[in-house]
């Protein structure tokens, strides 16, 4: 074989250069990947299933008796628990994104010309699916514990649509956090924040029972209009300007965090 060294290398059958993969095809592949990873992450799945059931039972049976909101507490608390569980589920996106960034996968993807959008969209879509399960579970446990929604089909559609928008927005916020922090552990800290954000809102107790300094935050934080709109839609009551405010908040967070994610990705890798 040593004589081959001195001969010109025979032109190895020049492999045809592959067509670049389109962004849609790449996104579909990355969505499948994230769904598969989500399904196999047993710890995450157990939390996604146990958290809704536990929280619903804790609020209705443990705290509910001591809280007077003027209506059945289970009817009052469902939107708050929904946002708590789905918010937590969405926040896990930060961990998945951060894990990808600390491993070699992003380098491989970038060297194949697959950008940030397919990767992050994959994680967000997987998060939305996971949260669909959590939502169904929260509603089922609520109904078993006396929740009697009055919503019309259109009201249901609007409520689920708003919830989906909230989940997508929180997932993108979380993706941006995942790009911002330096380790999956730090990304996990974001879940903690999201778990507490619904408490100072109209989700679990009426805002006017809070101390004055907290009322200002609770009245104006983004979750309050989302909870207000969800509650009104589910109980078939007038929604007022909560719906518009909720959509504006979620839409704003969504657009803002997508732009921030793109900028953070570029900043981190160029």
């Amino acid at each position: 074989m040593s004589d081959t060294v001195t001969l010109p290398i025979p032109a190895a059958a020049p492999a045809p250069v592959l067509p670049a993969v389109g962004p849609l095809a790449a996104t579909a592949t990355m969505v499948r990947r994230s769904l598969r990873l989500g399904l196999r992450n047993v710890d995450g799945l157990i939390i996604a299933l146990v958290l809704p059931i536990t929280l619903m039972l804790v609020f209705v049976h443990l705290f509910g008796g001591a809280i007077d909101t003027g209506i059945d507490y289970v009817d009052y608390v469902v939107p708050g628990v929904l946002l708590l569980c789905t918010g937590y589920g969405a926040s896990l996106t930060a961990v998945s994104v951060s894990e990808d960034l600390t491993g070699g996968i992003v380098d491989r993807l970038r060297s194949m010309d697959v950008g940030a959008l397919p990767l992050l969209t994959g994680h967000v879509v997987a998060g939305v699916v996971r949260n669909g399960l959590s939502t169904a579970l929260v509603l089922a446990v609520a109904v078993l514990n006396g929740f009697r929604p009055q919503a019309s089909p259109l009201g249901w559609l609007a409520a689920l649509g708003l919830l989906a928008l909230y989940v997508v927005a929180m997932s993108w916020v979380s993706a941006a956090i995942g790009l911002l922090v330096r380790s999956p552990e730090a990304a996990g800290g974001f879940s903690f924040f999201v778990l507490f954000l619904p408490y100072p809102s109209s989700g679990f107790v009426a805002v006017d029972t809070m101390p004055g300094w907290l009322q200002g935050f609770a009245e104006h934080q983004p979750l309050t209009p989302v909870i207000g709109a969800l509650r009104a839609l589910l109980l078939d009551q007038p929604v007022g300007d909560d719906a518009a405010l909720a959509v504006a908040w979620c839409g704003g967070l969504l657009v803002g965090s997508m732009v921030a994610s793109a900028a953070l990705f570029r900043h981190r890798f160029h």
Binding site: R33, R36, L37, R40, N41, T102, G103, G104, I105, D107, R108, L109
Partner: peptide, 11 residues
């Protein structure tokens, strides 16, 4: 092929 494997452990 970098120093950090670009593989998903769960796949």
């Amino acid at each position: 092929t970098g120093q950090f494997a670009a593989l998903d452990e769960l796949q």
